[in-house]
Design a protein around this nucleic acid. Structure first.
Length: 258
DNA sequence: AAGCAGGTGGAGT
DNA sequence: ACTCCACCTGCT
């Protein structure tokens, strides 16, 4: 490690590591070292985070404090987001239950791979496959690194999804596609679903979890349960809110843990 | 032992 | 534009 280490504390009321870890947005990079204690990687960076008393403590190199503040979205006020919910009893309950969940600013490439792998799949196998892809490395491989070892992807238990990743890696290699999605939500969405293996659900997950478009609301089997169990099968108004992604996360979390 | 799991592409209307 | 349905694989 280079430079001084830094230990920073943050109020825990709207920052709950365990809830974030179990909220469905994180599929790689986090490993639980003990109760409420994690080592976390994102891109080429690594930190340790743990719950102490009424705080969350983040330990990382001094020059990376800003990176991790952004990763945990600590510049966003979740209290205001919670209080600005529409007049909706179920959402109100979910917001209280999920208080502490934040929408992370995860590494884009890691998010893309994670959610391509996640389709029609289950959590244990998703995690297993993603660990297989990482292998013995300290960090999840970049697109360049994965391209070099693309043949190995066939041995990662990905099933038919390996073809999706290999095609994407080849497109990136020859430059017919880039990882720049720095554009309006609608344009980024169109470009994402043009990727072989990315449909509407995965595209919305990438927009929300990798590109921080807070208005995006991925609809998966759990969200369909939310709609049918609490909204008479209708799609609630808040799915179109500017903070729909946060509402999706807390209702997803609430429904899954009932 | 069939069916399912954080869906998608492709074929057929 | 909209319904079906096969699809890798591991788990129950």
């Amino acid at each position: 490690m280079e430079g001084k280490l830094s230990s920073t504390k943050f109020q825990k009321e709207y920052f709950d590591l365990k809830k974030i870890h179990n909220s469905g947005q994180v599929l790689l990079g986090w490993s639980e070292l003990g109760e409420g204690e994690y080592s976390i990687t994102s891109g080429r960076k690594k930190c340790y985070a743990r719950e102490v008393a009424s705080h969350v403590e983040i330990n990382c190199p001094e020059e990376e404090v800003g990176y991790w503040k952004h990763y945990f979205d600590l510049e966003t006020d979740y209290k205001i987001m919670e209080e600005s919910y529409s007049d909706d009893t179920y959402l109100h309950e979910a917001l209280a239950y999920g208080r502490g969940i934040r929408i992370l600013n995860q590494d884009l490439w890691e998010t893309m791979v994670s959610f391509i792998v996640s389709q029609n799949n289950n959590i244990p196998r998703i995690s297993k496959s993603l660990k297989e892809i990482q292998g013995e490395r300290d960090f999840f491989p970049t697109a360049e690194e994965m391209y070099e070892e693309r043949e190995k992807l066939k041995n990662c238990g990905l099933g038919y999804r390996d073809a999706y990743l290999i095609k994407l890696l080849e497109e990136l290699k020859i430059g017919s596609r880039s990882l720049c999605f720095d554009k309006q939500t609608e344009d980024a969405y169109k470009e994402l679903i043009s990727v072989y293996g990315i449909g509407p659900k995965v595209a919305n997950c990438i927009l929300l979890f990798g590109l921080h478009h807070m208005n995006c609301c991925p609809v998966d089997t759990w969200m369909k349960k939310v709609f049918s169990n609490h909204y008479e099968g209708k799609v609630p108004e808040w799915t179109k809110d500017k903070n729909a992604g946060y509402y999706q996360q807390v209702t997803f979390f609430y429904e899954r843990n009932q």
